[in-house]
C-alpha cells in the first residue's frame, strides 16, 4: 500500500500552497481520483488522519471525487466505462481499446481563508 506516503506528499504540497497564498484555515481539501488509478479512495481516507496530524490540515475535511475510467474501442469507436464493462467493449466485445481518462490523481481545490 503506497497511499500513506502519497497522502503525506499531498499534505506537504497543500501546506506550501497555503503558505505561499497567505491562507491560515483550510476547511476542506478536495482530491480527484480516477477509477483506474492505483490509489484506492478507501485507503486514502483511512490514512488521512495520520497524515494530517500536527499539520495545518489537522482539522481539514477530506472530500474525494471519483473520475470515471473510460476507454475508446479501437474496433468500433465506442466510448465506454472499463470497470462497469469488465475491460471489454460492450458493443463489439473487443479488448482492443485505448484509455481516455481515469488514471488521474489530482489535488482539485481547497476551501480556505
Amino acid at each position: 500500500m503506497h497511499e500513506l506516503g502519497v497522502v503525506i506528499e499531498v499534505i506537504k504540497t497543500v501546506e506550501s500552497f497555503a503558505q505561499q497564498n497567505g491562507l491560515t484555515k483550510i476547511d476542506t481539501l478536495v482530491l480527484q481520483i480516477g477509477e483506474l488509478s492505483s490509489m484506492i479512495p478507501k485507503y486514502i481516507e483511512a490514512c488521512y488522519p495520520a497524515a494530517v496530524d500536527g499539520t495545518l490540515l489537522q482539522d481539514t475535511r477530506l472530500k474525494i471525487e471519483i473520475l470515471p475510467g473510460n476507454a475508446i474501442c479501437k474496433k468500433c469507436n465506442k466510448v465506454f466505462n472499463l470497470i462497469k464493462n469488465n475491460m471489454v467493449c460492450p458493443s463489439c466485445t473487443s479488448k482492443d481499446w485505448e484509455i481516455l481518462c481515469g488514471r488521474e490523481f489530482m489535488i482539485k481545490e481547497i476551501i480556505a481563508c
Binding site: V10, K25, F105, M106, I107, I110, C113
Partner: peptide, 17 residues
C-alpha cells in the same frame, strides 16, 4: 467572521515526482 472561498489548485500529485 472568516470568509471561506474555493481555491483551485488543479495539480497532478505525480507532477512533482
Amino acid at each position: 467572521m472568516d470568509t471561506y472561498k474555493i481555491i483551485e489548485i488543479k495539480q497532478s500529485v505525480f507532477e512533482d515526482n
